[in-house]
Design a protein around this nucleic acid. Sequence first.
DNA 1: ATCAGCTGTCATTTG
DNA 2: GTCAAATGACAGCTG
Length: 783
Amino acid sequence: MLHLKKYFTEGLIQMAILLSLCGVRVDVELEPYLPSSLHEMILGPTSALTETQFHNLRNHLEEGLHPKSVELDGFSTAQRLLGWVPHAELETWLVQREPEPLPIRSPDQASLLERIPAEIERELTALPVEPQAELEDEEEKEDTETSLQECFRLLEETFPSTEEQWLNDAGGGVEDLESQPSDRDPLLFSTDNPSMDFELHWQDLLNIMEPENTDMDMASSGHNLNSRPSGTFRGNVSGTLSNCCDNPATEADQETLLMETHLQHGLLEPLTESEPVLLPLTPTTELDDHNSALNTQDTLNNIDGHPLNSPPDQTDLLAEEPLEDFSMELMEEDNIITFLSQIYVGRMEPEHLSGIDVNFQSSNSTIPLEGNVMTQDLAGSPPSHLLGYEDNEDDLPIPLSDLLEDATILDEIRLLDQALEEGFSPEMAARLEDESYFNHELAEQEICNKIAVTENHGRPSTHHHGNSTDCEDELDSDSGLSLDFSHSPASPCTSEASSCSSSSTSSSFYVSATGSSFSKDDEEDSEEGLAGSDMEAVMMIKQEELEEEEMGAVGGENHENKLVPVDYSDHSLFHGFSWLEHIGHDHTYNMPWSSACSIPLGKMPTKHAKSARQHDSVKPYPQSFSRSISENKIWSRDERRSQTLKIPFSNEVIVNLPVEDFNSLLSNYQLSEEQLTLIKDIRRRGKNKIAAQNCRKRKQDVLLGLEDDVSSLRRHRSRLLREKRETLRHLQEIRRHMEMLYKQVFSRLTSEEGSPMDATEYMLHFKPNGRNSKKQSQKDKEK
DNA sequence: ATCAGCTGTCATTTG
DNA sequence: GTCAAATGACAGCTG
């Protein structure tokens, strides 16, 4: 009796408080139903509350104050509350029962005042309900439910007319309330004219409930989506009354309570039989569309994994969109949540609900949420053929797949592919040509400019420097030639700065430096474009990427090794490679002589001045002579020799004069054999020195050019791969479109007898020339 | 002290 | 055959 008192009292008081807070006047008149001893025990000697106290309490509750505030402590007992509950007003209220059972609370806790305002606040603010993870043991729940039932029965007896009214208004939903009182606290309506206000109140409640439902679904969908039991959803509008009351604290609670309730009250079977089954739905963006039922049907038809639903190649192709799949999977849950929330709040139209119910029922709860079904182009599909298969998923797929596998269809698809290929190949090739090499040239031009800027900023006026400072610098060149103006990999003063070719080759260093990232970008693009390609393409691309990585490892790092077998003579093979124009016997590779000739003999600055000085210090030259030279200009060895032998020409002249001029010059002077030998050696060494510089420059250019070409070829290859993927994707779309057309055509075709044509017995043939010619259906007896 | 890069030089090859 | 250029190899210098 004690526990009866507890449940009875708490439940009733809870109800009364909630009703009163809504401004509903309720006359519970509890006292007559209570034994005098119990009543006295409940109310106690201090049960009398003043009207002021009650209003204070009510104000606190309405202000959202925590029920454990000091002022509320004075009203913390149920007995005290009972005193004024009978005069509350009952308007409309929806009570969500806390999952935690009442008896758990200790008597000294202000359980009601704690819990009820919390619920009120939760309802009013529509905040997500924190899941109450733990459920108490079954016995306590049963006790709780039993007590509440008793409370409700008591309430019914207390104001039967009101109850009857809203029961009648609510229709079947009230039966749910009646039959499952333990699921949730009842939805109570009692106004002066309940039948009029019912819908309005209900709509308000829906509005309040909606976000909470969504939030709860969101909270629960992450982990419990697929395991959602079928009984948690009532897919009809009439049933939404009870469903929308089904505002569970948590989904787990809801499930548990439902299961328990159904087991206890024998409602499980009606639920599962008559109510639509809520199953995981593959979310689509078309869910909001009212035509989504069709799409859903197709989606589910593809989802169910029946191999015959789609051609094998298509499934293969579809299976190879990992990125899209991934993104779709990311989208799924949100869409499911949205969809479910729509269903919960009754936003979807009944026919949709029914259609979806059919789909749900025909689907398996373990439907793999394949996102690739989203890529199906279902636009334009006539609903008829889809609806025709709606009731039986086994009707459509088999013949259709056979059709699609048929050689004729494949041939037609091939024709389409060919047409497609013919359509884009020339322009694509042209675009490739343009993009690839135009970009290449653009990049080279940019790099030329960049190099010019870099040289101007980073190494200001090396020419100038050479001309201005060479007087202080010593030459150590044996030939006495200034070679700093000439280009060398280390010497930035490239005399062919005007030569864009040289710049391009040296600039190719920048290209290659950025080429890796460039290629990487392209490869990333390739990865992006990977979605939608078929397995073959993916495998091939992966293989090619592996090869590319290997190639990059070789070409990027060990390009020296690649340089060796290069056949420079085969210019046709390397057509378009800018560095090739410097390959071969290009004797004008470096012609900086105009500036060099202006440089006085022995004034060429070199970095070897110091070493030359060291050389000189070793050599048996007079110290005074050496010092005088070092003061003015550093003389090279050949320069000193020429000075020693009194050669009348400068080394610069000796080296740079053309052969004819040089010979005529020699013939004009009477020179000793020693002098002639020295002059020829100076010329030879000077020539060879420049030649060596040119040679090294050329080698460097070749190397850089190869790196540049590697980068360019990689970009080209990535572009080609991307084009290939796009083409495959396009082909896939065409195939899907063909499939849809096939479905449409067969859905409209009828045989001579008027019966629908079986796709397994008929085939569609395209006339070879004819877009004008309609598709012909011929009986395919071979089938 | 060591090393990588640059440069000059020589011998050889090539056109 | 001569010559200039190219190139491989080597050595010295420098940072």
